Amino acid sequence: MVATIDLNADLGEGVGDDEAMLGVVTSANVACGFHAGSPILLARTCVQAHSRGVAIGAQVSYPDREGFGRRYMDIDTEDLRADIVYQIGALTALAMAAGTQIGYVKPHGALYNTIVSDEQQAAAVVAAVRSVDPRLAVMGLPQSLVLALARDAGLSTIAEAFADRGYRRDGTLVPRGEAGALLTDSAEIARRVVELVTTGTLTAVDGSRIDIDAKSICLHGDTPGAVGHAQATRAALLGAGINLAPVIRR
């Protein structure tokens, strides 16, 4: 049986080469303006993604443009829920104006990592998504609390892995700034992704082997050499006979 995997990237942030990345990925996590992006940039990103046949998801975040959404925020449940609803609504309208629709929601940065285990914030995100459109899927880390709560709420989920990030033995990401957090060699990144897709396992920073059941692979667009990493990964997957396709398209 031939494997199929989705390749996603965070786009519309005003950093990196979005046009080049759209030639590689099958899904685009488009920023919603809270951590990065402007209305015109997000609108153009939706148009470009749609013209390339790339699926679109809403990349929601804490309201933290100064910190690029990578700083933890202690937010009241109703405030966070309203923030998420607002962001999904904005990108939904921009996608519709571009002739397409969003199919999933992916939290960004610190919010993404927080809702791996924080029940209050994870529940707020799930409630927000479900209240806007219960057909939307939630993308997150395998075994994370947010995906469990999303499934309990009747939402579809997309478990993802990261091409250029290091993992701890518990399956969580090595925090940025720590040794092993970011991978920088395109060939090694591509090799690891093929290994992950074909075996469902990766080597953590401590040398242990961990199981990762992912339907989508994230290729960061804002890291040095990102386009080269992405192109090498796509080529390696196709060379291994692995099909590339979005998990959800609407």
Rank of each mutant, 00 (worst) to 15 (best):
R130E: 03
T100S: 14
G53Y: 11
Q231L: 13
R249G: 11
V146Y: 04
T223Q: 09
D152A: 14
Q120L: 14
T114V: 13
A245C: 04
T26C: 03
L145S: 09
D170V: 09
V85G: 10
R71C: 08
I84L: 07
L238M: 13
Q48H: 08
F34S: 15
I56T: 07
Q143C: 06
P246S: 08
A93E: 12
I40K: 08
D10Y: 03
A214H: 04
G221L: 01
V193M: 12
Q101H: 14
L22K: 01
Y104E: 08
N8L: 10
G239T: 04
G103D: 07
S144K: 06
I115Y: 08
V126E: 12
Q143E: 15
L173H: 05
R234F: 02
Y112F: 13
V105T: 08
D79S: 07
A95F: 01
G57H: 00
L7P: 14
A20R: 08
L149W: 04
I75C: 07
Q120I: 06
Q101R: 15
V132G: 10
D206R: 09
I115M: 13
G166N: 02
A127F: 03
Q101T: 10
E160A: 03
R71A: 09
G23N: 14
A137K: 06
R209L: 12
V126Y: 01
A235D: 15
R71T: 11
S27N: 07
H108K: 01
F68C: 08
G171T: 10
L219Y: 03
D83R: 00
P63M: 00
M1Q: 09
A137T: 10
L94K: 02
L238C: 09
H220F: 01
G154A: 12
A190E: 08
D18M: 10
D76N: 11
L183M: 11
T114L: 15
V129P: 06
R192V: 04
G89D: 14
A122W: 10
A161N: 04
Y86S: 14
P175L: 07
Y86K: 04
A49E: 10
R249Q: 11
M1E: 13
S27Y: 02
L111S: 09
G14C: 09
T77R: 14
G200L: 10
R165S: 13
